[in-house]
Amino acid sequence: EITKEQRALMKLILDAYNRHQIPQDVTKKLLQDQYSAEENFLLLTEMATSQVQVLVEFTKNIPGFLSLDHEDQIALLKGSAVEAMFLRSAQVFSRKMPNGHTEVLEERIRKSGISEEFITPMFNFYKSIGELHMVQEEQALLTAITILTPDRPYVKDHLAVERLQEPMLDVLRKLCVLQHPQEPQYFARLLGRLTELRTLNHYHAEMLSSWRMN
């Protein structure tokens, strides 16, 4: 059973998650048909910057985050930004979009100059997230849990981060049982995606350098 306090926490996280989205004028540009390779590069960079800003605003609303050591806050955000961005993008791809939008978006990414060996695992990840059919609360909590991962590089006070992450894991576990009574392994599957995300994060630096060379 989810307690009253846990419900309040869940609502807070979900509201913050929904409130902080990439501005529409930025996302609209993604669907414009004509673009040169350089415009594409600039646009994807603008998108990434916007995603990080949105992510920071969301994170500020996670109860207790701003009470952490300031440098630890930066270490957590720096360590998780790429993973949180992959999660958010995965959700964009698993949502039902108007006709043709998914194709335009996918084409843009494929033409970004990122090599195929990185594109394939990325789209495989998007697909595996889509297959989970997460509810919004699960998406928001999973993002918060990703950000509050204590063992990121340069984090000094692991215990303080753990204390913030644990209640989120607890609510998510209960929510999974309630939302997916037929799938006892659902929570474990969600945590498995976090491992996949770590792998993607690991290859991201390589992906960036291959992109730059291209």
Binding site: T49, V52, Q53, V56, E57, K60, H70, Q73, I74, L77, K78, A81, A205, L208, S209
Partner: peptide, 21 residues
């Protein structure tokens, strides 16, 4: 790594500022 410098910059600025205002 150099590739992360931009990221840290954006994070620091966003943590200081307030987009909601």
């Amino acid at each position: 790594p150099a590739s992360n410098l931009g990221l840290e910059d954006i994070i620091r600025k966003a943590l200081m500022g307030n987009l909601e205002e």
